[in-house]
């Protein structure tokens, strides 16, 4: 939580400083008539807040969307909750396991194992 807070503070400070640095731009020009301005507060908000927000959203989507789209993925340490998969196994695994139980010692010729 703490790094998030300090990050938010940094972002807020940075944007505030940028805004303050731009205050001279708000000063009225000699030829400028304040009442004729067609640039309303809403326009300013849309341009300087709306567009950056939209851009941020698009970037976030581009970063996270492909990742969440490739959903089935094994992560070490997670419990396995899928059905067992048997490639080139018997067509009826349960029955085959039962009928094969008696002959365990006879079939094994060797092997190895590993953990990760």
């Amino acid at each position: 939580m703490k790094p998030l807070l300090s990050r938010a503070a940094a972002v807020a400070t940075a944007s505030l400083v940028a805004l303050l640095a731009a205050t001279p731009a708000w000063a009225l020009d000699d030829g400028e008539a304040p009442h004729d301005s067609t640039f309303t507060t809403l326009d300013v908000l849309l341009i300087f807040v709306g567009i950056p927000l939209l851009a941020t959203l698009v970037i976030v989507l581009l970063v996270y969307a492909p990742h969440s789209a490739s959903r089935p993925r094994y992560r070490p340490g997670r419990p396995y909750d899928g059905d067992p998969l048997w490639f080139d196994g018997p067509s009826r695994p349960e029955r085959a396991l039962e009928s094969g139980a008696a002959t365990t010692e006879d079939v094994r010729g060797g092997g190895a194992s590993a953990s990760w």
Binding site: L85, W86, S99
Partner: peptide
């Protein structure tokens, strides 16, 4: 070349042997 992915019923080594035995006449 048979590949089984899933939880072991008991000891994994013993279970692997049971899986092999379940292949019946093809097991050897």
């Amino acid at each position: 070349h048979s590949v089984h992915v899933g939880p072991s019923d008991g000891d994994p080594r013993v279970y692997a042997e049971r899986l092999l035995a379940a292949l019946g006449p093809l097991a050897p």
